[in-house]
Design a protein around this nucleic acid. Structure first.
Length: 461
RNA sequence: GGCUGGGUGGCAGAGUGGUUAUGCAGCGGUUUGCAAAACCGUGGAUGCCGGUUCAAUUCCGACCCCAGCCUCCA
């Protein structure tokens, strides 16, 4: 039985879908005005693994991940770049898809965009105004009245009184209450706008997720996810909007992934300490990034460093080395105990690090079996590939992974092969001096040779 | 100030009221022309102080420290 840590209750709960056999999940995606950084990658990879695991657990999963393609930062960036908002957002949506594809992230069931859902947004704001949860201010903005929703704060554990006591609440003359937040922004000259009952304007940030999730999944659905930084105010506000609008419970399980850190500090745009996915992929294989992310529990902080990525590479090298030269065969009932342990780990709030430990135990088993029981070894290999696949790992072949040159520099494969052939000849002649010279030469190029009875194989360090 | 999380061996990172995490690194073997890979064996940890218990790293309380949210942010 799957249990999930629910941010709403701050505890693990047994997962029960609203409709048996079906899961409806919404995750807050990207605001598209820049490239994905590692923080985005974590969210994307973590929820991809959850998506995959729910599916192999037998659920039909509808997974919605939105795209925010209109907001202040986008408008600002488009002006800076001298391009239209649409040019900017299309460019970065494409870049995001390149990054997610590279990271072997499956496409969600749908990726709704805010600008395609303006009608639904306006309708929701209208309902909130009608029900007395929102009001149009003198400046043309429409605000949500936080005081009108008694349960405000139930997700973040914050009480309105405490928030007011904090010094950081902005003062805005047009709001009736400092905690009120904007649902609809009146357009300023030169800004993009859509017509609405309150005049030309555009949606506030929080309302788009309420509108899109409800449109796609209904008023009440199973899982809503996102980064920890969205818990407040974004998700708190979504609950306030949605539940006030529909009168129903909005979401059953809230899942928040932890931050990526650099030197014990949150990776963020404002601190300028972020690494983009594409920069990292110049030096590391995508699977190494995935491994690095999933090797920590999704709620823990994830410290970024090259050493960590190197570690992921060493670990993956071990797994792929075990698979090298083995033809996978159908499993039969091989390895039910491994499969059960993997499942138990994942059922325990998606404990990917523990699930990955099973992968390494399978690798050891393969290495033990391969000399004297090729059939069992091949079955173990098939299981390793299968379980790895649940996490989106071990999706390449051993040869491809071990011989891949992530930095694009280094010897071409054909040149390596030629030198290996030369060395094989020298070894046949017992010319150990020449043989070692060639190995050292390759070693300098980051190529490791491994001699066996079947010949010499090579891999990149 | 209010609210959340967390402090585990050399590093990363899980679980667990008494018994192997896992990976990398170390040490000793086996193997190898030399290596590498692999296998076998092995040392090493639970922030501090109390409490509960036959037994606590694991439960409870205080303390110290770290990170995060309360402002755009995955």
């Amino acid at each position: 039985m799957l249990s999930i840590y629910n941010s709403l209750s701050n505890s693990k709960e047994l997962f029960k879908p609203i409709d048996p056999g079906q899961v409806r999940m919404y995750v807050c995606g990207m605001t598209v005005y820049d490239y994905c950084h590692l923080g985005h990658a974590r969210m994307l990879v973590v929820f991809d693994a959850i998506f995959r695991y729910l599916k192999v657990s037998g659920y039909r999963v509808t997974y919605i991940r939105n795209i925010t393609d209109i907001d202040d930062k986008i408008i600002k960036r488009a002006i800076e770049n001298g391009e239209t908002i649409q040019q900017l957002t299309e460019r970065f949506i494409q870049a995001m898809h390149e990054d997610t594809d590279a990271l072997l992230i499956e496409r969600p069931s749908a990726e709704p965009r805010a600008t395609d859902n303006i009608a639904a947004i306006i309708k929701m704001v209208e309902t909130l105004v009608e029900k007395g949860h929102a009001y149009c201010a003198d400046n043309g903005d429409v605000y949500y009245s936080v005081g009108s929703f008694a349960e405000y704060g139930k997700l973040s554990g914050k009480r309105p009184d405490d928030l007011l006591a904090g010094a950081r609440v902005e003062k805005d003359e047009s709001k009736r209450d400092p905690l009120d937040f904007v649902l609809w922004k009146a357009a300023k000259p030169g800004e993009p706008f859509w017509p609405s009952p309150w005049g030309d304007g555009r949606p506030g940030w929080h309302i788009e997720c309420s509108a899109m999730s409800t449109t796609q999944l209904g008023a009440h659905f199973d899982i809503h996810g996102g980064g920890q930084d969205l818990q407040f105010p974004h998700h708190e506000n979504e609950i306030a909007q949605s539940e006030a609008c529909t009168g129903q419970q909005y979401v059953n399980y809230w899942i928040h992934n932890g931050f990526v850190r650099v030197n014990e500090e949150k990776m963020s745009k404002s601190l300028g300490n972020f690494f983009t996915v594409r920069d990292i992929l110049k030096h590391y294989q995508a699977e190494e990034v995935r491994f690095f992310i999933l090797n920590s529990h999704y709620r823990s902080p994830l410290n970024y460093s090259d050493e960590q990525l190197d570690n992921a590479r060493a670990a993956l090298t071990r797994l792929y080395t075990a698979l090298r030269g083995i033809e996978e065969t159908p499993l039969g009932d091989f390895g039910e105990d491994y499969r059960a342990r993997f499942k138990d780990a994942m059922d325990d709030d998606f404990n990917t690090p523990e699930a990955m430990a099973v992968l390494f135990e399978l690798a050891r088993e393969i290495n033990r079996l391969r000399e004297h029981d090729a059939v069992s070894a091949a079955q173990a290999a098939a299981l390793l590939v299968e379980l790895g696949g649940v996490l989106g790992l071990i999706q390449s072949t051993a040869e491809n992974y071990l011989k891949a040159a992530p930095s694009a520099k280094g010897l071409a494969a054909e040149d390596v092969e030629a030198l290996v052939a030369q060395r094989t000849e020298a070894r046949a002649n017992k010319d150990w001096a020449e043989s070692d010279r060639l190995r050292d030469l390759l070693k300098e190029q980051g190529i490791v040779l491994e001699d066996s009875a079947k010949g010499t194989s090579w891999r990149r360090e």
